[in-house]
């Protein structure tokens, strides 16, 4: 079975979702990620979904569960790279994914994790990210 690559960068695990994501592959990721967090003592997880063409309720739930599992294992999760059309569709689907930290891209996601480690976790997107998102959307 194909697998989703998980890379360790410093103390952060970077997961890049592939475009044609099968449910089974996505489910396998949850377990592998949990094991990798323990093995690598990672403090953060960045999940890049920029290649995903959609996020439906299954993948949405998977992202939320993965963030929760990581948190129980002492790692914070940031989901990055969501396409605007996906954000609009998710809200209409009734899946706001509150509880999931997001950032526009991998760099900002890693920066958000670093900032969270300095200041204590709490904030999601920064104001700067929100402004960028609005500009990008126009």
């Amino acid at each position: 079975m194909e697998r989703i690559p998980v890379l360790l960068i410093g103390k952060t695990l970077l997961v890049t979702m592939q475009s044609d994501l099968h449910d089974k592959v996505a489910l396998a990721l949850q377990e592998e990620l949990a094991e990798r967090i323990i093995k690598t003592e990672a403090k953060g997880v960045v999940i890049d979904i920029s290649a995903l063409e959609i996020v439906d309720s299954f993948i949405g739930r998977l992202l939320a569960n993965t963030a929760e599992i990581s948190s129980l294992l002492g790692a914070r999760t940031v989901v990055v790279g969501m396409q605007p059309a996906i954000a609009i569709t998710l809200v209409e689907l009734g899946l706001g994914l509150q509880g999931i930290q997001t950032a526009l891209d991998v760099d900002r996601g890693i920066a958000l994790l670093a900032k969270g480690n300095e200041q204590g976790w709490g904030h999601g997107r920064s104001k700067l990210d929100d402004l960028d998102a609005i500009r990008r959307f126009k």
């Binding site: 449910d23 063409e53 959609i54 996020v55 439906d56 309720s57 299954f58 396409q83 605007p84 059309a85 996906i86 609009i88 569709t89 209409e92 689907l93």
Partner: peptide, 17 residues
């Protein structure tokens, strides 16, 4: 439009599953 494509594909994914 891209947003409408995404909505339709997402709906299809839910029902196909």
């Amino acid at each position: 439009s891209l947003v409408d494509q995404t909505k339709l594909v997402t709906a299809a994914s839910e029902i196909a599953r």
